[in-house]
Design a protein around this nucleic acid. Structure first.
Lengths: 139, 139
DNA sequence: TCTTGACCTTCCACACACTGGAAGGCCTAT
DNA sequence: ATAGGCCTTCCAGTGTGTGGAAGGTCAAGA
């Protein structure tokens, strides 16, 4: 199977597959014409990596997962530990993004968004403390 | 003010400040000795960018925000549109990460995580449909 | 047989936003 | 005079691909 078909079947761009070979994630054979030949096992690995990447695992984590996958002596505790650590990273990222979302949506809500230059978003970014506007007399 | 103090006051590493000058986000003057000299206005810009970056705005978005900040003729609608578009990107990222979190935590929950090689996480990555184990007779 | 077009190859450069380090100049205090 | 801490520039690397150029190969049709 040539790279085009491997690409179709794994859902990975041919360029990406070549890159994965470059960094040693897969090692397809070569035909006499120099074309890469992908075995079923190569294809499985590509699909495996595709799924792991889509769950946000880094390339190095994919490499570790692949070697666990290949290892019949593996202990599932190792896999679980890797997955949990990645899960924790995902959760941290979510928290960070939610904090951004909160701050930013508060600023966006305060901005009237009309033709005037006055803008709480820019004020917020400039470090101006946004004060609550009080209507009424102040002593 | 030299770069070290600008770094302390803006919360940005000196390296990053040099990089920001490289790409034209700030343009500090120079002293006779060749050292960068940061004015209050430079410092404001650095702090502005620091805050915008911490809200996840890209460098190009920061550049746009800075130029809106500098522009007395700006309309707040432009700022709001930029912020909203960024907010939408953040929310998309959150959704993507939450989907990963869901899938991954389901797999992690299924994995007993002991000394045996058997592992639903690897099975999931390999594309094995995880089936519900039914106890009892099957006809 | 020749041509066309789709496929494949390698190699180089770019994207983002820094970060590290080397080599060397400058400034202040002892 | 020397030490150290600051500053300068320049080069290279991070991670994960993506784009494009230049050129080889293959199968089908005229």
């Amino acid at each position: 199977m040539n790279i085009g078909d491997a690409s179709t079947q794994s859902g990975l761009p041919a360029k990406t597959i070549r890159y994965y070979e470059d960094i040693g994630l897969v090692s397809p054979g070569r035909g006499q014409n120099g074309y890469r030949r992908f075995s079923d096992s190569d294809l499985h690995k590509l699909a495996f990596v595709q799924r792991a990447r889509s769950l946000g695992f880094s390339i190095e984590e994919c490499r570790a997962l692949l070697s666990l996958y290949d290892d019949r002596e593996r202990v599932s505790a190792d896999v679980k530990a890797l997955a949990r650590s990645h899960l924790a990273q995902i959760e941290e990222k979510i928290s960070g993004l939610q904090a951004m979302q909160k701050t930013l949506s508060e600023l966006v809500d305060k901005c009237h968004g009309d033709e005037r230059p006055d803008c709480p978003i820019l004020d917020g970014l400039a470090g101006v403390k946004v004060t609550i506007k009080v209507t009424g007399d102040v002593e």
